[in-house]
């Protein structure tokens, strides 16, 4: 039926090879082909950020990316942040500041926040809010998420 293609890329530090449908997006590949479910589907249209991953060091919406386009690239998902000390601090900040309620937006928020903290030494509130503008959260009202990221940036490095 649908056209398949073999790709090879680095996922969370480990090289791997997978066969994907050419029309499939990276989100579906991660969740359904590879079985990593930390990256979430919230809209499939780039509007919610629940599917945020990092590719070659920048954050992207995996739902807006063709899976085949992962070929040769370095992809990090929320699962890949497990062994990263800066990410540990960020996760702790989320927990400590009450930035998590239902938690559905949280993996995407953490991935994007991690990207913000890599880009900006000590981001202020305004910078964090703008940085998170592509991540929707229906529960928290964002304030505690922003607080967590700002606090993490203030103590880090």
């Amino acid at each position: 039926m649908s056209l398949k293609h073999d790709i090879e890329f680095t996922l969370n530090g480990v090289k791997r090879r997978v066969q994907v449908d050419v029309t499939m997006n990276a989100l579906a590949m991660l969740r359904d082909v590879i079985g990593l479910t930390g990256t979430k589907y919230g809209c499939g249209e780039g509007e919610c950020g629940a599917c945020t991953i990092q590719v070659d060091g920048v954050s992207l919406n995996s739902c807006l990316m063709f899976a085949v386009d992962c070929d040769g690239r370095e992809v990090t998902t929320i699962e890949g942040l497990a062994n990263d000390p800066q990410a540990d601090a960020l996760r702790d900040a989320f927990v400590e500041h009450g930035a998590v309620q239902c938690g559905f937006c949280t993996p995407g928020m953490v991935m994007q926040a991690d990207h913000i903290l890599h880009k900006h030494e000590h981001p202020d509130e305004g910078c964090v809010k703008r940085g998170l503008e592509g991540n929707l959260c229906r529960c928290t009202g964002y304030k505690k998420i922003v607080d967590a990221v700002v606090a993490c940036g203030a103590t880090e490095k």
């Binding site: 780039g46 950020g49 945020t52 920048v58 954050s59 992207l60 919406n61 807006l64 990316m65 994007q112 990207h115 913000i116 703008r130 940085g131 503008e133 592509g134 991540n135």
Partner: peptide
């Protein structure tokens, strides 16, 4: 333009 993630892509 859009969001950081989309600006990156």
């Amino acid at each position: 333009f859009a969001s950081d993630q989309i600006r990156n892509a």
